Simulated assay, not measured.
Amino acid sequence: MDRRNILRLGLGLPFLLSGGATEALAGTLNDQMPKPARKPAPPAAPRALPVIMLDPGHGGRDPGAIGPSGAFEKDITLDLAKRIAAQIEAGGRCKAVLTRSKDVFVPLQERAIKAQTAKADFFVSIHADSAPNPDARGLSAYTLSEKASDGLAAAIADRENAVDLLHGLDLGVSDPQVAAILFDLSRRHSLNTALARKAHIVKTAGAKLRLLDNPRRSANFAVLKVPDVPAVLIETGFLSNTNDELLLTSAKSRSKIATVLADAFTGAVTVG
């Protein structure tokens, strides 16, 4: 190609690339160029499972209630709590933690502190108490209230609150103003949730287990004063009643109770 033809070709290129030809050429080149791989989105962090803190009542030098045949409440509550924890873990929807896993004495305030330390989503204290009336039997659930719902609830709470004085140092809050603040925090942040969960537990467990008359109760339990953690105390039955003692001392019956309560506790935390 001579020099004149080369010049004519060079002069014609701006016109050839006008009228959208430039964009077309750029698009063609872009289509032919390899595209950089898109950076994959980082995997979502696994959602932490809700933590249910199970508190086996009494322990160590504090036997709790003692049944007519000599059964200790502390042994029954520990066995039940371990069974419930195993069922909760097996369900895979919640994590279960115990305030005690062996026969030791744990002060009431320390039990509450354990729930806060574990960042628990739900605190459940497990009991099998005695009642003034030996005919009283069946499961019941309690939430915190400065005023007890009835005489039986008040009597049980008074006996439970005296544990630290009888079997160890009294680690309760001595300053009435601090105690009032703690109670108010508990009421503000957790009482409504605890009330709803108590209702769920009673409804769920009541379909398969015998309930005490008026099973949804309240009292001023020191162990339930856990700021910012919904807390419920469960009386699985009364060792002062021979029929309840027979059930609670049976491994087969405790297994059934544990299965029902594990489902009820998990549902109370995860439903709604």
Rank of each mutant, 00 (worst) to 15 (best):
A71P: 06
K39Q: 11
A155C: 02
P134H: 08
A179E: 08
S190A: 15
M33T: 12
D263K: 12
L11W: 08
I156K: 05
S218W: 04
L152Y: 13
R3W: 13
D103G: 11
V226N: 13
A128S: 14
V178W: 09
L171Q: 11
R38D: 06
R100W: 13
N220P: 00
K256T: 07
S250F: 10
A154K: 14
P132T: 01
D213I: 02
G151D: 12
L166V: 06
G60V: 04
A205Y: 08
A155S: 14
G60E: 02
L108D: 01
K35V: 14
A71D: 03
E110D: 14
R8P: 00
L209C: 04
Q32F: 15
K225W: 07
L209N: 01
A264G: 10
A262L: 06
A128V: 03
L9Q: 06
I76T: 09
V106R: 05
A120H: 07
R217S: 07
R100V: 03
S250A: 11
L182M: 14
R254F: 13
T266S: 15
N192C: 03
N192T: 10
L224Q: 05
Q116R: 15
L169E: 14
V97M: 15
I84Q: 10
P68Y: 08
L9P: 00
I88D: 10
G19F: 12
P40I: 00
P40E: 03
R47A: 15
P40V: 00
V202Y: 09
R8I: 10
L49H: 01
A222Y: 08
L224C: 06
A148Y: 12
R188D: 11
Q32D: 03
L152P: 07
K147G: 05
P176N: 03
L191P: 00
L224P: 05
A153Q: 02
A71T: 09
P43C: 02
G20C: 09
Q116E: 12
V232Y: 08
A199Q: 08
T193S: 15
A264L: 07
L16H: 01
L191W: 10
F123L: 04
G206D: 06
T22D: 06
G10W: 12
L261A: 06
A136R: 07
H167Y: 15
A41N: 02
P40T: 00
D103E: 05
A120S: 12
T22G: 15
R38N: 03
F122A: 06
R61Y: 00
T249L: 12
G151S: 14
A44F: 01
D62C: 05
P230T: 05
M33L: 15
V223L: 09
L98H: 09
A180E: 11
A128N: 02
N133R: 08
A128M: 04
F105V: 04
A199T: 05
H58Y: 07
N161R: 04
G20F: 10
V226A: 11
A196K: 11
L195C: 01
E160G: 09
G92F: 07
P134Y: 03
E73A: 10
M33E: 03
E110W: 13
N30H: 10
R83I: 01
M33S: 13
R216D: 11
A262Q: 04
L166Y: 10
T259C: 09
F72K: 13
N214C: 04
R217T: 02
A37F: 08
R47C: 01
